[in-house]
Amino acid sequence: MSIVHVLGASRFEICHSRRWQRAAQAMFSAALMLVLAGCSSAVTKLDTWEGSPTSAVNAATLKTPGTIHVSQVNGRSMTNYLMDDLALDYALLPGENQVVFTYKTIWAKTGVVRNGESKVHVIESEPQVVRFDAAPNETYRLEFDKPGSRQQAEEMIPAFSAAVVGESGQTLAQSSSWSPDDSAPVARTPVSDESGAQPVDGGTLSGNGGSSLNQLKEVWKTATDEEKKAFLRWAFE
């Protein structure tokens, strides 16, 4: 066999392998989109308790923007997701609640970016804590002054604070700096879960089991088009 035939066969194998890889990626993307398209449009809500307490049927809701990352509720760790900037809702038991969070925002760099250097500026606050009494079936929001530029974001970080705002617009509580040493968790008595639902790493997704696929389905519902595109780019890298 001549070297020409060998080179020709090698090019064919490489080309065939690349076509197969592209086809596999396309099939995976299509399958993922079909699965996600079958999800309902319900908003993702994370339960913040263990077990099945009777007061959960009258749970309040805390709505958080994508720049707020909740790490604990009443001493219980919350789930971390693959994508930042996801606006999530947290179901809270009526009564006293303690929420620990950070503010994190990302700004694109305008100058030349060297190889290996991050293309964005990440601005993040120190951990904050807010405590308030949640009324049954009420909805609350975490609000703060939104910066219009990276410079404004950097200037607001040292004194950053967010407010818990009720449905009528009244401010119920203001956050302050948090340290594990100066904050005791709110006592919540675990109740046996008769439904058999499994907690999801410190946050059970309402109405779903604890599988990774169910987590992905629920998170996808709240993602913007740009976030979905960014995730798909990451999946195929």
Rank of each mutant, 00 (worst) to 15 (best):
S2V: 01
R11P: 00
F12D: 06
E13S: 10
C15E: 09
Q21F: 09
A24C: 09
M27C: 11
M27S: 13
F28Y: 10
A30E: 14
A31Y: 10
A31C: 08
M33T: 11
V35S: 08
A37S: 14
G38I: 04
C39R: 11
S40H: 12
A42I: 03
L46I: 15
T54A: 15
A56S: 15
A56F: 06
A60V: 05
L62P: 04
T64P: 06
H69P: 00
S71I: 08
Q72C: 03
V73D: 01
N74R: 04
G75Q: 04
R76D: 00
R76Y: 01
R76A: 02
T79E: 09
N80E: 10
L82H: 09
D84I: 02
D85T: 03
D89A: 08
Y90T: 05
A91N: 14
L93N: 06
E96Q: 14
Q98R: 15
T102F: 02
T105K: 07
I106A: 03
T110W: 05
R114H: 10
R114A: 14
N115Y: 12
N115L: 09
V122N: 02
S125P: 02
P127I: 07
V130A: 01
V130T: 02
R131L: 03
D133R: 14
A135E: 15
P136V: 05
T139R: 12
T139I: 07
F144S: 13
P147T: 06
S149H: 07
S149L: 06
Q152W: 01
A153S: 12
E154P: 00
I157R: 07
I157K: 05
A162Y: 03
V164A: 04
V164S: 04
V165W: 04
G166Y: 05
G166L: 03
G166V: 02
G169V: 10
T171N: 07
A173E: 05
Q174G: 00
W178D: 01
P180D: 08
V186E: 09
T189S: 10
V191S: 13
E194V: 09
S195N: 08
V200K: 14
G202E: 05
G203K: 07
T204M: 12
S206R: 15
G207Q: 07
N208T: 12
S211D: 09
S212N: 11
L213N: 07
L213R: 13
L216I: 13
L216Y: 09
E218S: 15
V219P: 00
W220R: 02
T224D: 04
D225H: 08
R233N: 10
A235W: 13
A235D: 11
E237V: 03
